[in-house]
Design a protein around this nucleic acid. Sequence first.
DNA 1: GTCTATATTTCGATAGAC
DNA 2: GTCTATCGAAATATAGAC
Lengths: 210, 210
Amino acid sequence: MAEPIRMTKRDAARRENEARILAAAEKVFAEAGFGGATMQLIADMAGLPKANLHYYFDTKEELYRKVVQQIFEIWLHAADSFDNAPGPVEGIGAYIDAKMDISRHHPFGSKVWASEVMHGAPVIQDYLETTLRDWTKGRAAVIQRWVDEGKMAPIDPRHLLYMLWAATQHYADFGHQIETLNGGRPLTDRQWREAKESVKTVILRGIGAI
Amino acid sequence: MAEPIRMTKRDAARRENEARILAAAEKVFAEAGFGGATMQLIADMAGLPKANLHYYFDTKEELYRKVVQQIFEIWLHAADSFDNAPGPVEGIGAYIDAKMDISRHHPFGSKVWASEVMHGAPVIQDYLETTLRDWTKGRAAVIQRWVDEGKMAPIDPRHLLYMLWAATQHYADFGHQIETLNGGRPLTDRQWREAKESVKTVILRGIGAI
DNA sequence: GTCTATATTTCGATAGAC
DNA sequence: GTCTATCGAAATATAGAC
């Protein structure tokens, strides 16, 4: 009779510990890279003995893989803003907003993703070739339709998508450089709004949508 | 009497070995990150015994530092295209051309730079705070002048610079992703030209310069 | 200047008591 | 499930013959 309750408690502890470890791992992997990250650093940041990490995640690589998968999900959700939009002003505008918000609130995830891709995507190559390829194909078709409908200038949809990814993720991946050039201070709320507006204005006017 | 010649030969050998090591190190650091790179890998790629690396560069960190400095010089030279331009179309257009060429021909350097900044610039923080800060201030002033002269729309010069860096370097740093989305094949000459034109068109129209 | 062999350290992973 | 102690592998760095 006590079993269900004990299982629930145990499961709750497991979930919490896993979440703590994943959050710590995301930060450490982002700041030190996969090779520079150590299980000891992650354990210290999670407030757990190193051996416990190996209890929840067999190997360092498995832990890293989970972190990258987590990030990938976040990227995919940003695409929702893109859908069901009547035209590029709403669709691309909302997408930029969503991506900029992610850069601000998930900078570690963005960096881990960037690092993974820069090193040749040794862990998530299959995602690139399946999920991301399909996603890109679909969005490129939407953009092409907007071009055909005369709602924006004729731009290669692929290169436009790359520009959107580049411009938005830059604020996370190169956040340290931006902060340094900002006098060593993080961007304020106001500056983040200005950044968003700058990106949206240049892109939307650049594709002839406004 | 023979000394000068022997010194010259020795110096030539030294320079060639250093260059070989630096080229190999740039590639390995780019592909594996600082932590993932090993002196053995670099030595193998340079075709030298591992101990020789320590003869030319005392520590792994010193070798890495030299690689990053080399890259920094390349970035600075790209700024020449930006100067002495009558307006944004010529200045920013030439800058985009130069940065895109660097992304194509120095992808490893770009990745090492990106990785260094992403990890908080532990090695080149002083460069960010001096050389890069001054450089950015100067270019931002030029852009602001163009705005004041009515040659382009009122855009925050900082955010425009970030967009230029982001859009151009993305083709190096995320080259693997772009290649995967291109059917697993590197961009052709034609596709590189299209990429350049896309970036230039969107940016220059986006800032109201064309 | 070059290279082999090795010292020293660090890290990922595990064993085993609790 | 948790934690201490430790193993074994791998990496940086160096010693010393040539």
